[in-house]
Simulated assay, not measured.
Amino acid sequence: MTEATSCGGVVIYRGKILLLYKSYKNRYDGWVLPKGTVEKGETHEQTALREVKEETDANARIIKYVGKSEYSFYSFHEQIVKSVHWYLMEAEGYHSKPQKEEFFVDSGYYKFHEAYHLLKFPNEKEILKEAYEEYKKLKSKNQWGIRQRR
C-alpha cells in the first residue's frame, strides 16, 4: 500500500464552478475538479494553486480550506490510498484552457446543479457541496470578491 497526497480547488467565478473533462485512451472519461500531487518542498496551498493553473490556465486565489477527501484505487497491482486537500478559490475571470498533456479535452464554468451532476466522483460532489455552501455564506455577508473592489 502506498499513500499519496494531492491538493485541488473548487474554483468559482460569478457563482459558476470550473470543471475539467478528462478523456484517457477511452478507458477514463469524466468531469473532475482540478487537482494534483504535492511536489517536494511545496505547501498544500502552493500545490492547489499550481495545479489549478497548470490544468486549467485559470488565475485563482485561495479563499479558504474546505476539507479533505480520501479514496483508494489500484495501480499496477498496488493499492494507492489518496488524500486530497481542497480549497475554495476565486477565479479572476471565465478564462480556462484544458491541459492537453494530462488528457483534459474540455473545461468550463458551470452552474452548481450542472457541475454537481456532471462530476464523475461522489467524493468530489461532496466537496463541491461543502465549498458551494461556504461560497454562498461568504457572498451573503458581502465577503466574496471584496479584495477585488479595494
Rank of each mutant, 00 (worst) to 15 (best):
E78W: 00
A60F: 04
V105Y: 12
Y94A: 05
K129S: 12
E102V: 11
F76Y: 03
E130V: 15
S96W: 00
S75D: 06
I63S: 02
E92N: 02
S69G: 05
E133F: 11
Y132A: 09
Y71I: 00
G67E: 05
S83R: 03
A91L: 03
I62W: 04
A131G: 13
E134Y: 05
K125G: 14
E133Y: 09
Y74P: 02
F112N: 12
H85E: 11
K82I: 02
A131C: 13
H85Y: 10
L118N: 08
V81E: 10
H95R: 10
P122M: 14
Y132P: 06
Q79I: 04
F104G: 05
E90W: 00
K125A: 15
I63R: 01
E102K: 10
Y116Q: 14
G67Y: 02
K129G: 13
N59L: 08
L128M: 13
V66A: 12
F103S: 07
E101I: 10
A131T: 10
N123F: 12
K68R: 09
Y65K: 03
K97G: 05
E126V: 15
E134P: 05
S83L: 08
L128E: 10
F73C: 00
A60R: 02
H117E: 15
Q99H: 13
S96H: 02
H113W: 14
K129N: 12
E101V: 04
E90N: 02
N123T: 15
I80K: 03
A60P: 02
H117M: 14
H85G: 04
K64T: 07
S75E: 09
G108K: 10
Q99D: 09
L118H: 11
K68M: 12
K129C: 13
S72N: 06
N59F: 08
Q79G: 05
R61E: 07
K120L: 15
I62H: 05
E124W: 10
H77L: 07
